[in-house]
Design a protein around this nucleic acid. Structure first.
Lengths: 239, 239
DNA sequence: GCGAACTGGGTACAGTGTTCGCAATATCCG
DNA sequence: CGGATATTGCGAACACTGTACCCAGTTCGC
């Protein structure tokens, strides 16, 4: 019975009723994976590494999951589960703002999450619940499905794209094994070439003025600024 | 002389002046990588695979590049090079629309590109040229650097996020070795569970109505719809 | 001509996901 | 109660991956 003949992850019972009780659970596997991804990056999440974290044999994991990909799905759904208990404001604009900020905060907490979430949709219970919740702000305004999805898609595309590029340098620094400062120094080596060449006047101006203080909260401000623009754009297209 | 002591990719001369002439070029390496990525996916791009494509030894590639990551940078910059020759409309709104559409078309042509581009910034000549070009639409309106970057960041975050989720299922289908239809069928198995549970009324409604025709150009329409919203949001925040 | 700089490439190593096979164990059914 | 059956844990093995190290061969500057 090849793995392909089995039903997909979320339609499969977690374990059978016949044999010995499993020593672990899907939940434990997901948590182990998340712990590794948070501290060592998504690339460090390997079957052997997870098994070691659980203190079990490597191939025993295939009793809980049919492919590594399914572990990633478990991890993704588990992370979305952190948002359980969220209640949204009544005003659609406030609700969408809340959704966007929660998505971003989750991504900041788990830098590897956007890479997973931007992939195919997750059908885990937490993810389905979250999707349902993100559809609710549009209840009042009566929109067709197309307009609804266009609005929600615009918002989530923006958030996803933003957080992804937002943490690019942090991830890059970790992957290369350098500290953030070391990495910034290496990237900074390009500065003179760019600014000295004279071929990129606009880029040069941006680089010079970007050196100004308040760099710490700049990402926050950019995100909020972008969010307001997206919300304004959505509002402008309401019937 | 470890690789880490050498200057970063774009500050290093492509080859020395002393020894034998190299049998290939960075350009050829990038093209080989792109060819593989386009036809077999980004995961298929390995040092051995590229070397085979070029008809050279695997470790000879390290004469052109110090890490595999640098090959990915070469590939990214090469793809951006396809946009050389672009001339933008005078009106800032038309210009941004053109930029967004070109980014999307490039992503559709090279599905692996967004995953690279959403990472750390590329400092290759084509990428720098493109960045400079994307800054130009704001020349007329006199904006501070912060507003300028907020506007451009909003647009590119949206485009990046959109194309990434846009092609998620295609990539997922290829990775699992199934045809697109087969994959859709497997995903469709979740339908009854979701709609039958009664816990997701809004999601159910969306799924039912999404079955309507015109599925083919739905992505196009969603992208255009989102783009107009983003542009409207940017316009709303101009001084 | 000679040393220094440079290129090509084979070998080796530590890691990856996953398949197969087998022993141990728990439940269901007669 | 006694098998038959389903299920679990897991070691061995396979075909991959990126790249450090080494050495021979080539070409330029002096």
């Amino acid at each position: 019975m090849p793995a392909n003949d089995r039903p997909p992850l979320w339609l499969r019972p977690e374990h059978g009723t016949r044999g010995p009780k499993p020593a672990h659970t899907r939940h434990a596997v997901a948590v182990a994976g998340i712990k590794i991804a948070d501290t060592e990056g998504l690339d460090a999440v390997s079957m052997r590494r997870i098994a070691a974290e659980l203190g079990t044999g490597t191939t025993s994991l295939y009793r809980y999951v049919s492919k590594k990909d399914e572990i990633l799905q478990l991890m993704g759904d588990e992370v979305v589960g952190e948002l359980r208990g969220t209640v949204l404001p009544a005003d659609w604009r406030d609700a969408l703002r809340t959704i966007a900020r929660l998505m971003r905060e989750t991504a900041l907490r788990h830098p590897w999450f956007p890479a997973l979430a931007s992939g195919r949709p997750n059908h885990g219970p937490n993810s389905l619940w979250w999707t349902e919740l993100t559809l609710s702000p549009f209840d009042g305004l009566d929109l067709g499905t197309d307009e609804l999805l266009a609005n929600l898609g615009t918002l989530s595309s923006f958030v996803l794209g933003h957080v992804q590029s937002e943490m690019a340098d942090q991830e890059a620094a970790r992957l290369s094994g350098l500290s953030h400062e070391q990495w910034m120094d290496r990237e900074g080596e390009y500065g003179p070439m760019i600014m000295g060449s004279g071929r990129y006047p606009r880029l040069t101006r941006v680089m010079v003025e970007a050196e100004t203080p308040h760099a710490a909260d700049r990402r926050d401000r950019w995100f909020e600024a972008g969010l307001e623009r997206v919300l304004a754009g959505i509002a402008a297209h309401l019937p």
